[in-house]
């Protein structure tokens, strides 16, 4: 019930993001969702793509530092309070969300959000017990 995300180290200067997107375009990789964390000197780009292996190979070949991380894709009701419901479940259990970002595509009526949480297995179990839909990785990449 996990999805794989790739993270790329970038210096915080002009043209770095453009180069990453050019490399992915050349490798014919489609970006499904992304988030960028930045500091004054560097940033970490997190991506959900349709083909992890191809993306990692292409980026590594061009000298980028890339890593894979397990994240959870969760269906969030597309109405006021939808996100709160999920965060509240995690909060009640004392689970911290490292970061999260939204997916472009809807899953039926619902929005999809990517969560980076630790411990991941416990969080997935907890969400499922509370009738929250956790989307499997294989489905996320092709949604």
């Amino acid at each position: 019930m996990r999805a794989e995300q790739i993270s790329v180290f970038l210096e915080n200067k002009a043209g770095r993001l453009a180069e990453v997107s050019a490399i992915l375009a050349e490798a014919n990789v489609n970006i499904r969702a992304l988030a960028l964390a930045d500091t004054s000197d560097f940033g970490v780009l997190r991506l959900i793509v349709n083909d992890n292996q191809k993306a990692i190979e292409a980026l590594k070949k061009r000298g980028f530092t890339v890593s894979k991380t397990d994240v959870v894709a969760v269906e969030v009701e597309d109405r006021p309070g939808g996100l709160y419901r999920i965060l509240d479940i995690l909060h009640q259990a004392g689970i911290n969300v490292e970061y999260m970002y939204a997916f472009v595509q809807h899953s039926g009526e619902n929005a999809v959000m990517i969560f980076r949480i630790d411990p991941i297995d416990e969080a997935v179990k907890l969400l499922q017990e509370n009738n929250v839909t956790v989307i499997d990785g294989s489905k996320v990449y092709t949604m």
Binding site: Q5, S7, F9, T39, F42, V44, T65, V66, E98
Partner: peptide, 14 residues
């Protein structure tokens, strides 16, 4: 930043 130093979390990098 090589693979051993890298993390997807900014707080770890800092």
């Amino acid at each position: 930043v090589g693979e051993r130093l890298f993390s997807d979390e900014v707080k770890h990098l800092q």
